[in-house]
Structure formats: C-alpha cells, structure tokens
C-alpha cells in the first residue's frame, strides 16, 4: 500500500466517503443554485460544498484532499467571488438596466456566497498549519 492510503481512517469510512462525496457536492451545488429563494441562501450551499472536501480530508488525510484542491484555486475563487460581489455593488450604484437584469443578480448572489464561503471555509480548515499532517 502506498503511504497515502495508509493515512486517514478505516476502510469502512473511506468507502462510505467515496460513495457519498458526490452526493454531498451535488446537494451543496443545489442549495447554492437555489440560494436566492431559500432561507439562509447560498451561505449554506458554500458550507456544504466545503464540507464535501473536509469529509475527504477527514477520511483520507490532508494530502489527498489538497491534491484535489490547490491553494491557488482557492485564492482565485476568493478573488473572483469578491470581484463579483463588487460588480453587484456597482450594479446598485448605477441602477442601469444591464446591471439590474433579473437573472444576473440571483446568479451573482449564488456565485459570491457559494464560491466565497466555500473557499474561505475550506482555506481555514484545509490549509491550517496547526494540523500535524502539515509537517
């Protein structure tokens, strides 16, 4: 067995994780997509998507999770979602029709809250240096 497979939890947890991670991701994306209609909004969606990766981290160890998701990706998604957020702010400022389009606003809302929260949450948990695995 390779050293990566030795890390993490037991075979049972790993197998269950493999089976469920896809569903968790899908559910997270669903909650984020319908964020503008449901209470809590895209916030919960971002957290659920982040939890999928944290699930992988708990079961397989940090290295596997980090191989799926690089810190550059997180940085870019934080930056992009913050920029979309600014775009919405400017939409409020200008009040023009192309900004106030009824479709763009929910999509943007979903994007910022979903992406941003996912990235921040994951960055906080996954990239924390206090973990022993980071050595």
């Amino acid at each position: 067995m390779s050293p990566i497979q030795e890390k993490g939890m037991s075979l049972i947890v790993k197998t269950v994780t493999k089976l469920t991670v896809g569903f968790i991701l899908l559910y997270g994306v669903y909650v984020a997509l319908t964020g503008h209609l449901s209470p809590g909004g895209g916030f919960a969606g971002g957290v659920i998507v982040a939890l999928a990766f944290i699930h992988v981290m708990l079961a397989f160890g940090k290295e596997v999770a980090l191989r799926r998701l690089r810190s550059q990706t997180l940085r870019v998604s934080i930056g992009v979602s913050a920029l979309i957020f600014l775009y919405i702010v400017m939409a409020g400022f200008s009040g023009r029709s192309i900004f106030n389009c009824e479709i763009t606003i929910p999509i943007c809302e979903m994007a910022i809250v979903g992406f941003g929260l996912f990235a921040i949450f994951t960055a906080l948990v996954l990239l924390s240096k206090t973990d022993k695995d980071a050595e």
Binding site: Q72, R75, V76, I78, G79, V80, A82, L83, L86, V89, M90
Partner: peptide, 14 residues
C-alpha cells in the same frame, strides 16, 4: 471601489 478591485485582483494574479 477602486482599491477593492485592486485588492481582489491581486490574489488572482498571485
């Protein structure tokens, strides 16, 4: 807005 745009573009350039 201007400094915020810069602050968020910089991590993307990274």
């Amino acid at each position: 807005i201007v400094p915020l745009v810069a602050a968020f573009l910089i991590p993307i350039a990274g």
